[in-house]
Amino acid sequence: MKPRLAVIKLASCDGCQVTLLDLEDELLAIGEALDVAHFTEASSRFDPDGPFDLTLIEGSVSQPRQIPIVRHARAMSKRLVAIGACANTGGLQALRNWANHEEYLSLVYARPEYIETLAESKPVSELVPVDFELNGCPPDRHQLLEVITAFLVGRRPNIRSESVCLECKRAGHVCVHVAYGIPCLGPVTQAGCGALCPGKRRGCYSCFGPRENANTGSLADDLERKGLPPAEVARRFRLIYGWAPPFRAESARREKP
């Protein structure tokens, strides 16, 4: 029997699920290798009960009703893989974690009493253990394919926690930070995107989040030496992956007067 796959969504833009659909050349093979039991974005087949051999979960835990979904997904899945910035660190919507939740609700919604949200946007791993975290906003489709392939053949996914700089140098891109003075978060950001922005002469804004052992303090010092005011440095660390602990701590340090 084919392994059963579920793709589940929480609070998210669906971009991670679309990344899976972007695997156009491999989609048929994936459909043949796996029994797609549940896929919110792509299929009308609706089988949330499980059990599943592999579950990809997208989005952050942002509403009380999502808590039982996450617990159910964990209980029903042999392997639970959290994909994307939201599922792994709370995502862009975690920007509200710094604000007053009640005030936001009354500012944004005409009838806030209809809205049920948590005060903080949380990563899945804060509620249940996950077997693997695939980062990126959205994740790279080749890396997503690698996670699925590795699961099917039984190897460890070849996803490295190194900096974007390695991909940038392997590609031969000229370093935007050194050669043009463009602030770049590549040195503290996890590789996987293929160094897309530096390849287009733009600084990395860390849509893959902090790499292992990110020395954010030294890079932030350097950005300040290059003329960025501390508040601007803080802002750069408080974006898509702002709630990830190393970035959260760095933005807090730079924010202080």
């Binding site: 140098k169 392997r170 040195p187 052992n213 020395n215 030294s218």
Partner: peptide, 13 residues
């Protein structure tokens, strides 16, 4: 080590 980013640029260039 307080300054080094461990970004690997030195080794790749």
């Amino acid at each position: 080590a307080a300054r080094c980013l461990a970004c690997a640029n030195c080794t790749l260039v």
